[in-house]
Simulated assay, not measured.
Amino acid sequence: MLDHIPGIKYTNSSNFFLMAGPCAIEGEDIVLRIAERIVEITDKLQIPLIFKGSYRKANRSRIDSFTGIGDEKALKILAKVSREFGVPTVTDIHESVEAAMAACYVDVLQIPAFLCRQTDLLIAAAKTGKTVNIKKGQFLSAASMGFAVDKVKDSGNSNVILTDRGNTFGYQDLIVDFRGIPEMQSFGVPVVMDCTHSLQQPNQVTGVTGGKPALIETIAKAAIAVGADGLFIETHPEPEYAKSDGANMLHLNVLEPLLEKLIRIRQAVI
């Protein structure tokens, strides 16, 4: 399923795969510490891993919010994670001109949910030859994502992943429609459930996005039970001090026991 991504281990595993890491690349030491722990866990459990981290946060509520440590500096840290731990990496891109730059450092290019209809961005990502992970827009049905898949495939790249991150439910909440997982799988691509961003509470009056991290396990269990191919989980050793999305990240200490539960569910449904 992910054989085309360099560095993927356990391709014959019956497990789901995991896209996990901090929301943003905050610095080399913290990122390498997080990566080391996630790799240790996923190696033990034989879960294929793609390490994630945003080299720049372009979509922020307030102008004074953290956006990054510098594009090249952050991308080099992601490349170091790949070299040191032997795992592929994924990061977001926001404009067409970023695709070729990011592709020099990572294995998977991610299209943010708000940008999933941006044709030029999808084409630019496709033309790098890298796997393209498209987040489903909160404002779109699962069926609508077939057009995003077509844009990448029609540009000569068949390596596409779709990630659900919930649907807008009023002004400050999201809800997950699990019917979307099999519907998007019908396009012939792996489908991932974003267990952290689907629990965001955006547009808070403070300008800082809220979240419901206590429900990450609930979303993850349901997604695996429905048959999701992979999970997307942002995690941090100290979410309360994270520079981005701390309100809905999973504490790194609880990642292993959660994954152990999810493996048992996976084994029960396959």
Rank of each mutant, 00 (worst) to 15 (best):
C104H: 13
I69Y: 08
L2M: 06
V205T: 14
Q118C: 05
E183C: 10
M184N: 11
K76S: 12
I69V: 15
I38N: 09
F139Q: 08
F16Q: 03
D92K: 01
P213R: 08
P6C: 10
T131D: 03
G230P: 03
Q46W: 06
L250S: 06
P202M: 04
V226S: 00
G156F: 03
E84K: 06
A228R: 03
G53A: 09
K73C: 08
T42G: 10
E238N: 15
S61A: 14
I219H: 00
L121E: 04
M249Y: 15
K261T: 13
E95K: 10
T119D: 09
L259P: 09
P239A: 05
L109S: 03
E95Q: 13
Q138E: 13
L231K: 11
F85M: 03
L109A: 02
E84M: 01
V132L: 01
P237C: 07
C195K: 00
I175P: 03
L2R: 02
N248A: 10
P257Y: 06
F139H: 08
E72V: 15
Y10S: 01
D92Q: 02
P48R: 13
H94I: 04
L140H: 11
T11W: 00
P182A: 09
I77C: 06
N133E: 02
I263M: 03
F17K: 04
I161W: 12
F85G: 02
E40W: 11
L215W: 14
D29V: 13
I34K: 01
A100M: 08
G166I: 00
G70V: 08
P182M: 11
M1F: 12
I216Q: 07
K151Y: 06
I216R: 07
F187Y: 15
P239H: 06
I123Q: 09
L45S: 07
F178V: 07
F169C: 00
N253Q: 13
R60Q: 05
A99K: 00
G227W: 14
T168V: 11
L109I: 04
P22G: 10
D164E: 15
V152R: 01
D107M: 03
K52W: 04
P88Q: 03
V152K: 02
G156A: 03
V189N: 05
G166T: 00
A125P: 06
P237K: 09
V81Q: 01
I123L: 05
A103K: 06
V208H: 10
I161M: 14
V226L: 01
R62Y: 10
I77D: 05
H251A: 13
M249A: 11
I25T: 09
Q267L: 14
L262H: 04
A225Y: 14
D194K: 00
R83F: 12
G7N: 09
S155T: 02
S96D: 15
A242L: 01
